[in-house]
């Protein structure tokens, strides 16, 4: 799920990245302290859907539903072990809804925030720590690189799958691990060289 800025003119779009990040952290903290009552978790999820609507109007609700649907497999992976280990269904349901609410809140943040603004904000916030030897640009670059690495890893994964299919092998996660690791390491190596060439000193 690669979410990038979706243009808009809402107050959420106009809000500076730093304070918006603080609001996001506070919202996620609030969601995480909700107890095992599924109705409270549902209320939090409804509030997040309201925020989508606030940012994008009616289209925001559609976007919210799309993003929620994209989380289905992840949520399933989280639900099954909890049920296997005998957790109460109310508690499982609340946990899953809380997680979905938190992830959708984070996604909304990236939909309404330019990554350059986020990076500038992180560098600005961490600026005072430079005197203690901290390099804020490392944090900001890490975020940018993480966002960028996801489509690349997905691409490598698709290539590995295709290569296995082409050789008549049914694609298996165990068989994909090595080619995926090799491709990722090669990418990391070349990317580091490109960063250096563009004058990024870390």
């Amino acid at each position: 799920m690669i979410s990038l800025i979706r243009p808009g003119v809402s107050p959420l779009h106009r809000m500076p990245a730093g304070p918006k990040l603080l609001v996001l952290i506070a919202a996620i903290a609030g969601i995480s302290i909700i107890g095992s009552d599924p109705f409270e978790a549902l209320a939090a999820l409804a509030a997040i859907s309201g925020a989508y609507s606030f940012a994008f109007g009616l289209a925001g609700l559609r976007l919210f539903a799309q993003q929620l649907w994209q989380l289905k497999w992840l949520l399933l992976v989280i639900i099954i072990p909890q049920l296997i280990f005998g957790a109460l269904w109310q508690s499982v349901l609340a946990n899953v809804i809380r997680l979905a609410a938190a992830m959708l809140a984070a996604t909304l943040f990236t939909f309404t925030t330019k990554s350059a603004d986020l990076i500038a904000s992180i560098e600005h916030t961490l600026g005072p720590f430079k005197r203690f030897g901290l390099k804020p640009e490392i944090f900001s670059l890490t975020i940018a690189m993480t966002i960028n690495a996801i489509p690349m890893i997905l691409k490598f994964s698709a290539q590995a799958k295709e290569a296995q299919t082409a050789r008549g092998v049914k694609p298996r996660v165990t068989l994909m691990a090595v080619p995926l690791l090799v491709a990722s390491l090669k990418y990391a190596d070349e990317f580091a060289e490109a960063l250096t060439a563009r004058g990024v000193e870390i």
Binding site: S115, A116, R198
Partner: peptide, 25 residues
């Protein structure tokens, strides 16, 4: 540092040269 500020480098693999998520960024 001076060398890199006066010399731009283009690699064969365009994917590895992208640092930021969007084109303008």
């Amino acid at each position: 540092k001076a060398a890199r500020s006066q010399t731009g480098f283009i690699f064969s693999n365009p994917d590895v040269q992208i640092i930021m998520p969007t084109v303008l960024e």
